[in-house]
Design a protein around this nucleic acid. Sequence first.
DNA 1: ACGCCAGCCTACACCCTTTAGGTTAGAACC
DNA 2: GGTTCTAACCTAAAGGGTGTAGGCTGGCGT
Lengths: 192, 192
Amino acid sequence: MARANLTPAAVIAAAAELADREGFDAVSVSALARRFGVQTASLYSHVRDRSAVLDGVHVLALGELADRIAVAIGGRSGRDALVALAAAHRAYARECPGRWAALQRPAAASTVRSAAAARVVALNLAMLRGYRLPETELVHATRLLGATVNGFLALEANGSFGHRDPATDDSWHRAIDALDVAFRHWPAERNS
Amino acid sequence: MARANLTPAAVIAAAAELADREGFDAVSVSALARRFGVQTASLYSHVRDRSAVLDGVHVLALGELADRIAVAIGGRSGRDALVALAAAHRAYARECPGRWAALQRPAAASTVRSAAAARVVALNLAMLRGYRLPETELVHATRLLGATVNGFLALEANGSFGHRDPATDDSWHRAIDALDVAFRHWPAERNS
DNA sequence: ACGCCAGCCTACACCCTTTAGGTTAGAACC
DNA sequence: GGTTCTAACCTAAAGGGTGTAGGCTGGCGT
C-alpha cells in the first residue's frame, strides 16, 4: 500500500484549488480523496472533518489576501491606498472565487486568532492611517470598510448586479469614492 | 393513502420556518418531507428540486422585507428614512435568520423578475429621493446601499465582529451615518 | 533483521437527492 | 351510488456524501 505522502497542508491546498476550479460547494472529502487517489476514509488521518479543511482554506486565503493588500498599499496613502486595498480584494475575489468564498464562512476561533487575520487587520489600520480618524473610531471604520467592500463583492459574485457591464465597474468606483468621502467626513458620535 | 394537502406554497412556507428555526443548511427535501409526514419522493410532485424550494423562500423573504421597509420608511425622508430602511433590514436579519440567508443566494431569473424584487428596488429609490442624486447616479447609490447594509449584516451574522457587544451597535450606527454622509456628498463621476 | 505505528484500506451505518414506475384518494361525471 | 380519470401519494433504486471502527502494512528507528 504505497503512501501518498499526504499532509494537512497538502489537503488544504488541494481543497483551495478545487474550490477555485469547480466551486466552493464542490469541495468534499470524497472529491479530495479522488484527487489524491486514496479512499475517502484515509483522509481522516490528516484532517478532522470537512469543516476543518475549509477552516484551513479560510486561513490560507487570509494569508494570500494579506500578501496582496500589503503589496497594493505599499508606498500609497489616503485615497490611493484605499482604492488599491479595495482593488486587491476585488482582484482576489475574481481570480480565486473559491478561496474568496471560504472567507465568507464564520471564522473558527483558531482562524480569528491566526497571524494571517491579524495581518489583514493591521493592513486595514495602516491604510486608514491616512484619514487621521480618532483612535476610538478605528474599529468602526474598519468594520465599515470590510462591510462595504465585501458586501459589494458578494452581491457582484451572486449576480445581483446583472451582467458585468461597464456600469458595475462604475458602481465599484463610486462605492470606493463614497467610502473615501465617508472617511474624510467621518460622522462623529451622536447622541441617540 | 390520505392526502396531505401539499402545495408548493405550503412547502416553501415550511422551508422558511425550518430555515429560521434550524438554520439554512438544515433545509433539505428530506427534512421537509418529515415535517409533512410523507415520503421524501412525494414532495417532487409539488416542487422541482431543493433549489426551487430555496428560490421560493428567496421570493417570500423579498416580499416580507419589502413590507417591512415600506412601513419603516413611510412618512420619513432623508437621513431618517435611510436609518429606518437599514434598521428594517437588520431587524429582519435578526428575527428571520434563515429567510435572510436565503436572500444571499444567487437569485434565479424568475426571482429577479418578481414583483417582490421590484418592490424592494422601488423602495430603495424612494428612500434615496431625499438625497436628490442625479438620475444617472441612482443605480450606483442603490448598489452601495445594498452592499453596505448587506455586507455589514453578513459580517455580523458570521461572527466577524466578535460578540454582539455595544460596540457593534455603535459600528452599525456609524456605518449608516457614513452612508448618509456619502449620499449627501455624493462623489461625482471622475475622469479615470 | 525486527518491532512499531501512522497511514492506508475495507466495512459499515447513516443520510441526502432525485427518477421511475406502481397504487390510490378524491374529484368529476353519469 | 357507481365509474372513470389522474394528481398525489408510495416503494424501489441508483447515485452520492460523511465519518467511525477495526484490520493491514510501508517505512522508520533501533
